[in-house]
Design a protein around this nucleic acid. Structure first.
Lengths: 340, 340
DNA sequence: CTGAAAGCGCTTACAG
DNA sequence: CTGAAAGCGCTTACAG
């Protein structure tokens, strides 16, 4: 069943069928309706490979999930990205784009580039817990389109590629201010990885808020950690051993907070009565811990959808809109206590 | 840059390049190496659309995520499928298959069939929380290949399509026996949805185990629920109101167990000292509840990989292996207490 | 409104 | 080992 069969069944030329497919107004309405009916009856859908071969466009976006053995595995350990990925797939489907998903390792840029070069995709999106600057550079220098989630995974700001920006510093200021408003003076922070941009920005925000409230910064309340549960546990043990446990702990992400909650419970301390804990990210899990975790919500779905929209604009050569940076917002649950 | 350019650069005919691409041994090794070098230098990858047009095969599997507004939304509320989806994508990538992911609604079979008819995919996999028999029937009657995760989403057993089978009954027997071995006599169950196959099989297993241990079945210990957190909460409230709370509760899935834990805590009851609770599925979340949930692990990754393997066998017209049913296995955590 | 021709970049026989 | 030709199912000018 091809375009020629439809034409024969309808008693018209192949080109007329073509015009119907292209929504051209050069076809008499009766003819048009008759042809559409015949196509439907025969379940005719144009062969995409033939079309792509001619049009040199695929209406397909590649979603590259780049795993790093040293980090959480996306789709199994990872709690953050499944919502992001789902939102992207949904956004593409709604806009009529196909999504080709591929999993690769960080050290395998070849299989990513292959998909572009063999003309399987019009553009790509990279999702990873690691720095993907190297692979992005290769894609750009081959003149292909790519977007990245999020700014954290690149070492350079590059305004030419779609990338959502989260205002980490402002988020951390808000989080810290929440503690301050609740009457806390002894506010500690467990930071994320030193080489991580978001971790550093969140730490900046913590410092700014304290300075703003004229609360002296105590270096003993800063634990240089990583974005892991283990780090949260270690920080708490460390503080307890030193006899310098803060009354409120800002965890640079939710995983750290899960670890902190666990360690505090193991030490027989009550959250929030003895110690208040706040996370950052708002993973689904935060609703299920005991107590439920107060945290900063990162608008991942909006960020994902905006990224997809920007990328599609690039594909369709429409003017890019400037994306405003995204704000994290406070979600109050049960892990912070009011000292006032 | 096409196959002809490569041939010219190498000073051979187009067909010779073709033979190199097909790994034919009809090419002199020196020629072959020279051509491969030239292809690599020029980043040449054959245009897939042209190839597909001729070969009538895409090396692509469609992954249909079929949402049902009445159920948990896969990829956002859902805790079960992201691991399954990740495993499938990974399994396909490893075997050289592309994965086209699409999200649709239950009442939209057209967009699923379109992907087959326009020759975008060789086969499809359906993932859903609902019964997808109708859409599967349409796919099969159009003579396309499809697999479903899992047996629960079809109303009929159809041995012609790849579908992983989980031995729900045996799993529930093992779960119930665990309670019995711990010395429990008052064992309750919160069932899943009545019209759900797995729910009924798990209930059967519960009954069998009690009969096997000569423990009388008490209908007051059976709460007819649904696979939701809310159902777990309601069951506990109901039992407490009736003054008939069992000492051990078998929850037909983890969500029910989360609800039960929550309600028990709200009532001031301690798990596991006052009441033991067991889940079913082994969602990632079970490690994070307080106490960590003892549950039956469902081998979702293995089920997903096997489904992909079977489907690829069908695509490649290799003989199908008979898949053995999968077993759920007990994962002991902290929500069950030993009465002995 | 409609037709006939060329071409997209491959693969597939067929011939040597 | 290598070549020349036909064809996959569309789209794109060009002509009427």
């Amino acid at each position: 069943m091809d375009i020629f069969d439809i034409a024969r069944l309808a008693g018209v030329s192949r080109k007329t069928v073509q015009r119907v497919l292209n929504n051209s107004d050069q076809v008499r309405p009766e003819t048009r309706d008759r042809i559409i009916k015949i196509m439907e009856e025969n379940h005719y859908h144009p062969n995409v490979s033939a079309r792509r071969l001619v049009k040199k466009t695929t209406h397909t976006i590649g979603l590259f999930i780049i795993q790093d053995p040293a980090k959480d595995r996306i789709y199994s350990d990872d709690q953050f990205y499944s919502v992001v990925i789902g939102a992207m797939i949904n956004a593409c489907s709604l806009r009529g784009y196909n999504v080709l998903v591929m999993m690769t390792e960080l050290n395998d840029p070849v299989s990513v580039l292959k998909l572009y070069r063999e003309k399987s995709i019009d553009a790509g999106i990279i999702i990873s817990w690691s720095n993907v600057q190297a692979i992005v550079d290769q894609i750009l220098s081959a003149n292909y389109l790519v977007g990245v989630f999020d700014q954290n995974n690149l070492s350079r700001r590059d305004s030419s590629i779609p990338i959502p920006i989260l205002q980490n510093e402002a988020g951390a200021v808000e989080a810290t201010n929440h503690f301050i408003q609740l009457g806390h003076k002894e506010i500690g922070i467990i930071t994320g990885d030193e080489d991580n941009l978001a971790a550093m920005e969140r730490f900046e925000g913590y410092q700014k808020a304290l300075v703003g409230a004229k609360i002296p910064l105590k270096s003993s309340y800063v634990y240089n950690g990583q974005f892991t549960e283990e780090s949260g546990e270690k920080a708490v043990s460390h503080w307890i051993k030193e006899g310098a446990l803060p009354s409120a702990i800002l965890c640079s992400n939710d995983h750290i907070a899960f670890g902190a909650l666990k360690a505090l419970r193991a030490e027989g301390l009550n959250v929030p009565d003895d110690v208040s804990v706040m996370g950052f990210d708002n993973l689904l899990l935060t609703e299920y811990t005991t107590p439920a975790l107060t945290t900063m919500h990162v608008p991942r779905i909006e960020m994902a959808v905006t990224l997809v929209e920007q990328l599609i604009r690039q594909i369709e050569e429409k003017p890019l809109e400037t994306i405003r940076p995204f704000q994290a917002t406070l979600v109050k649950r049960d892990s912070c206590c009011d000292k006032n």
